[in-house]
Design a protein around this nucleic acid. Structure first.
Lengths: 338, 338
DNA sequence: TTGTAAGCGTTATCAA
DNA sequence: TTGATAACGCTTACAA
């Protein structure tokens, strides 16, 4: 029986003593080194079990210079971030995937005031890599950061031009175009869009997809208003659109949250979807499913996208070659509102 | 000019050299020790600035035996967790508050299979404390954990009986009772409830509040069905309730997500809220605000609740005395659906 | 007020 | 295959 010496959790040294081997051997066993005698492995395992030994993370990191932890950098505007099911689900994918590995996730709120602080923390060797879920165009410093540690972006970073920023995204242009085409196919003649912010690639790309679809159909592309991906933003944009042209009969909304806001306005004016106006949106989340009516929408594999981000990052940390750009598939969920 | 010696980020040692002082002095300055000569402080700061020095976290932790990091333990069922605005917002509060401190947040997914693994990690001294956002009644092991490191629960843990588990919560019984009273006051005569899971204190307590309100009004408390706080669960529960008594004219739903599901069912049967049925729910989130109609609901200060959890935890880590139980206020947001 | 020196619990190098 | 032993970068008595 090992006595219970005081002084905190059991150390590797204690395990070594109990197992009757050296610390090095214990370390090897713990790290799964192949070259250890079966008998020793056995003894060490038993000692570990008996003592309830768990390696000290800090010591390990210090000695190995590998932190086994990655940072998840999220925009300072945490409120809107977590309120958006898209981000929430991506985070979910990240967290779930990581739970199966030996990596730890550090949540890092990017203080926009001094992105410098965040960057320094990351560069100081406190993490093995970083995942950046960027809201705004202000991602230059992270693209920069990518030169010193592995970074993977969720969604194409705005400042990605020419840089070799790794990112995982969907094809927003194609998806938005597809969605808009469906409005055209339904015979909608005056098709508007509530686009996302002009400083986010998802905002720009989805607007671009809408534009292309209309151009292909020989329709005007003047009816565009930007929102901020929030219900309130959608409401305001909808009002502006109706003011500009009350005869709108088709609408592509770049996010379901904005769509729900838009729906409120439409309802207020007595318009019925899809009778008076066809509506297609983005994200098959709660908002699209539970609105009345439930909306035809572009579904993104959000959880999987998060998983993939982690996957790419870990591969890079391990030094393996991986694609710089990973494009995940989308699909339209038909609910008859187009 | 300090040359640029290779070999990774600048160390404290290098700062000391540049500043012309000893490592101890640098350490003192970095940690804000009061007993340092102004001149030395000045020199060290300049050197730190020049070198872009950032302390190595692992080394610091190892030497000080303080990790400056806390764990956020969330249930394995990450999907539902992040999909619920309540949890998302609490996490937001936690993350935001922590961003202002020197603490780091580690997301820890509690593998229900072996809670042992999670517990060991926490007990191995890898964090200074833990926040537990519990979904299920399976929180015994964390209440247990609280004996070795500071733990603060979000919401009263089910196994809190007799234990001195620290937690931050709202008064669910009172809030639910208040909400239900409003249905009674509106003249509703057949009042049902869609309660939360019976293995969560929020589920139990809100049902209890509903029960009390009805008892005080001399009304029967037979119409109760449980859901799992998800829209789908709300739908199913609503169906069961209508089957049991189609004459229901009042309903208290323990969460807005379930309410949205219930609304779908009601709509399907042609019932109009609040004309045919009064509805009051819990959580003033997106679901309650953007449903049609927007719902009268109990608002919880979710962000603040998260902040408070952190606050209590950090106080405890610092060794200060803090209340075991913190009850945050709620208020009813009137939207006329009662 | 400052510096010296002994750890903190691992990993990693090198002999054995 | 194993074991000494020197890092890893910082904190912290203890001395000066």
């Amino acid at each position: 029986m090992a006595p219970e010496p005081p002084g905190g959790p059991p150390t590797l040294e204690r395990v070594a003593a109990v197992a009757g081997v050296s610390r090095s051997t214990v370390s090897r066993v713990v790290n799964g080194s192949p070259k250890v005698a079966p008998a020793a492995v056995e003894a060490v395992h038993r000692a570990i079990e008996d003592l309830g030994y768990v390696p000290n993370r800090a010591a390990r990191i210090l000695a190995s210079r590998r932190t086994q932890s990655i940072a998840l950098v999220i925009p300072e505007n945490t409120a809107r971030f977590f309120a958006d099911p898209f981000f929430a689900t991506v985070v979910q994918g990240i967290a779930m995937y990581l739970a199966d590995t030996d990596y730890t996730l550090s949540l890092l709120i990017a203080a926009e005031k001094d992105a410098e602080k965040t960057r320094r923390y990351l560069q100081a060797g406190n993490v093995d890599g970083a995942l950046v879920l960027s809201h705004h165009s202000d991602d230059r410093s992270y693209v920069q950061l990518a030169k010193s540690i592995p970074v993977v972006f969720g969604g194409r970073p705005m400042s990605a031009e020419g840089s070799d920023a790794y990112y995982v995204d969907v094809d927003n242009v194609a998806a938005a175009s597809d969605a808009t085409h469906r409005l055209v196919a339904r015979g909608r003649r005056r098709i508007a869009t509530i686009a996302g912010p002009a400083d986010m690639s998802a905002g720009l790309d989805r607007a671009e997809g809408w534009r292309r679809a209309l151009e292909e159909a020989g329709m005007p592309t003047d009816l565009i208003e930007h929102g901020d991906f929030s219900p309130a933003g959608g409401e305001a944009a909808m009002r502006r659109l109706l003011e500009r042209d009350p005869a709108i009969d088709g609408l592509f909304v770049a996010s379901s949250l904005m769509a729900s806001g838009a729906l409120n306005v439409l309802r207020g004016t007595g318009r019925i979807v899809p009778r008076d106006l066809g509506l297609v949106t983005f994200d098959n989340d709660y908002a699209a499913q539970s609105s009345s009516p439930p909306l035809t929408t572009v579904e993104q594999p959000t959880v999987e996208l998060g998983r993939r981000m982690v996957d790419v990052l870990l591969q890079r940390i391990a030094g393996h070659a991986v694609p710089i750009i990973t494009v995940m598939p989308t699909r339209v969920i038909e609910r008859g509102t187009e």
